[in-house]
Design a protein around this nucleic acid. Structure first.
Lengths: 356, 356
DNA sequence: CTTGCGCCCGACAACGTTGTCACGTCACTG
DNA sequence: CAGTGACGTGACAACGTTGTCGGGCGCAAG
């Protein structure tokens, strides 16, 4: 086998070969190389083989972006995913599901963490738009997503994830937040609870207020009056959740059950219950699955989101748009699942038919 | 303000404006637009303002890749991250740390999950190489990474993460697997244990065998003979770990302590201990932190990896190379931290000086 | 033997941008 | 008042690739 070209400068970094280099080595025109690399027809078997051999010898890698610049469809085979944080277990699982669909299609995924920072949303969209992603999957953070219309108008589809967008009509895939929260309350009510506390995230985060709405709806449906003293929003980390839960539980007339409407809040609440030795007395249902929730005593009952399905559906929606689907925007709601494990089945005072 | 150009076709997707469009609207040359967009000097304040206004009116977004093609440094301001799975909590945290450093530098991150599939490693590298990433951060899966030399030779730096590469000399950032495992054993020995089981991942995964080595070293240092019956490798999910742990614990002469050398294995082991009602009798130390490990009874003692630091260091190493550092490859070992929480402090038979 | 057609192949322009260079203007300097 | 240099600006080529087109060749049909 021939040595790799031009060894003039000893330790200098070798230049990356282009189609021209491959063409020269194979003794063909540059367009023929292009044809072979892209599997286009009308190249004789012998020529194709020579080209392939030359490309392999030079370790030639086509430049997708250069091709893209000229190519008719102009697709970068790249998509952008904006989530709260790639380190967040829910988002990470969604990410993985999206990646699976994307990889199958030959797409690569840019992931960006927003950390609920409206500025970060804008910066990330800009950064990815300049890299010419073919589509966006976004967890909205700002109050208004109308600025994304520029991109959708230019043919870059957008699917919103986990939260509905504002100021733009586009596809979305969200969890059934209201229904899930209502189910949690209904479950607790069925175990005899009437004083059920609600712990939620920052109210400006839409999912937090939706879950609050579901909670209220659940109580109302059961004919239970809503006690504002038992509703706390604005919790964004487990430490604060612990503090607030402790305060509620040491009230003169404390709740007999708690619905914690987000992962970290649930963890903080469990800690509070354990600190007060109440984990077997006060019922708890958490929204969002807690990893290893079955190893905790009592095991944690949750309203669990189907992250995998959410991610997959969002990606499939995006690719449908890329494939030319121009139908009206679809709003997919993925149902939650009640995972009964113990903490949510601790009976309350009105559970006359139960012992203990 | 003027209306956005050419409204001839009513609902057709608008063409994306180029520098030429901005130049025309601002009444300047295309190069002047380039200068303004890139903040180059030698443009009068008035002209710059006109250009900026035109760009804003058209919602112009420069095409990074087109610029890149021509630009001297040829940097795509993009890097590729290959991990076991973006859904894996450890990898996800590493990812987040890398992203933080990258964002600060104006870099976007491609993430790809390999799922320990050697073929996936190759495919991901190719996909990202064709997208001209400026650097790779890779968790090696294959037996041999020498194929990556092509890319490093061409000036695309490579930092290996979590595992040392083979067949190539390059920067790496890994956890102190051997020492961490040794510490776990030492800790258990100090609590009076002599029959300590080892549960590990697939042996072909390097970190698994390193931790086994550390375990052996720990025993040897304490003058304890290694009992092959207490060593099981090849576990890759929690269900199998549970089964194996149950088998070990029901042996005629069962271990009094277990060192589970990976996250999922630890979870599986806890489940086995709980099923057998032994969680307060048999000591357990896990490698890799277990989320909510403090909420489990007993709380789980772990050898915890500093994912954040590992990610940050890897990213910083990569950027140092991109900034021109040509010194010899550095191999950074990030120490583990023993997190004492309870499960690892259950005394063993030789703990004469302790009560129970 | 022509004609026509299909196949193989390469020259050339173009994609959207930046590097190079040259030109014109203006304020200084000598 | 000529010479000099700095500044502001745009024409043009080039980056690596693909779309277009046309030329050459071989073969079947007329």
């Amino acid at each position: 086998m021939t040595s790799v070209s031009g060894d003039s400068s000893p330790s200098a970094t070798r230049r990356r070969p282009t189609m021209r280099d491959v063409a020269r080595l194979a003794g063909v025109g540059i367009k023929t190389v292009s044809r072979v690399v892209n599997g286009e027809p009308n190249v004789s078997a012998a020529t194709a083989e020579r080209v392939r051999r030359a490309a392999a010898e030079l370790f030639y890698e086509p430049d997708l972006h250069a091709g893209n610049l000229r190519r008719a469809d102009g697709r970068s085979r790249t998509l952008g995913l904006l989530v709260s944080s790639v380190a967040n277990p829910f988002a990470a699982q969604v990410h993985r599901a999206i990646e699976r669909v994307a990889t199958e299609r030959g797409y690569a995924v840019f992931a960006a963490s927003l950390e609920d920072d409206p500025g970060a949303e804008l910066r990330a969209v800009t950064a990815l738009a300049q890299r010419r992603v073919d589509g966006f999957i976004v967890t909205p953070v700002r109050d208004d997503q109308s600025y994304l219309r520029v991109h959708t108008d230019r043919g870059t589809p957008l699917v919103c994830l986990d939260r509905e967008p504002h100021g733009i009509e586009t596809d979305s895939v969200v969890t059934s937040n209201v229904e899930g929260a209502r189910d949690a309350v209904r479950h607790l009510v069925s175990y005899g609870h009437r004083r059920i506390a609600f712990l939620g995230d920052l109210e400006r985060i839409k999912t937090a207020s939706l879950r609050r709405d579901g909670y209220v709806r659940g109580l109302t449906a059961a004919g239970i009056e809503v006690d504002p003293a038992l509703i706390v929003l604005g919790l964004h980390d487990d430490a604060t959740a612990t503090a607030v839960a402790r305060r509620l539980l040491t009230l003169p007339d404390p709740p007999t059950a708690i619905f914690s409407s987000q992962n970290l809040i649930t963890i903080g609440t469990i800690r509070a219950l354990q600190q007060l030795g109440l984990e077997h007395e006060v019922a708890l249902v958490g929204f969002d699955d807690v990893e290893t929730g079955d190893l905790i005593k009592p095991a944690i009952t949750t309203i669990s989101q189907d992250a995998d399905r959410i991610g997959r559906l969002a990606a499939e929606r995006l690719f449908a748009r890329l494939d030319g689907d121009t139908s009206a925007p679809r709003h997919v709601v993925v149902p939650t699942r009640l995972v009964v494990r113990g903490s949510g089945e601790i009976p309350g005072p009105a559970a006359l038919h139960r012992t203990r």
